[in-house]
Design a protein around this nucleic acid. Sequence first.
DNA 1: GGTGTGACCAGCT
DNA 2: AAGCTGGCCACAC
Length: 112
Amino acid sequence: MSDKDNFFKRVLEVAQLVPYGKVTTYGNIAAYLGSKGSARMVGWAMNQSHHSKTPVPAHRVVNRNGMLTGKHHFGSPNLMQELLENEGFIIEHNQIVNFKENLWDPEKMSSE
DNA sequence: GGTGTGACCAGCT
DNA sequence: AAGCTGGCCACAC
């Protein structure tokens, strides 16, 4: 395995672990990886997630406010919202209304 | 090899 | 109260 992919790939893996109808935050993923302050890196990995061979549900990853900050990176700015709404989410002003209700934490799995 | 930036977060002014 | 800067780690030029 490539050692350089440790963080980058780890973020993608966690993102792929997010179940249907659930969302997680950059900070949670970063904290789960042990680097709470590297939330930016999580977003960066998401940017490269398009480059990743594996399909990454980046639309299930939002910021701490539940806002679709990265919707602009999905190819279509409304694509992210459509995907979330398709999973039963309620988006208002680019923000997930029931975000907190469907918030999923990687640490909560504790299946490591 | 140094500088800048990036889909963020939290603290300080 | 709101705005801004710093900090974190990795990648591109």
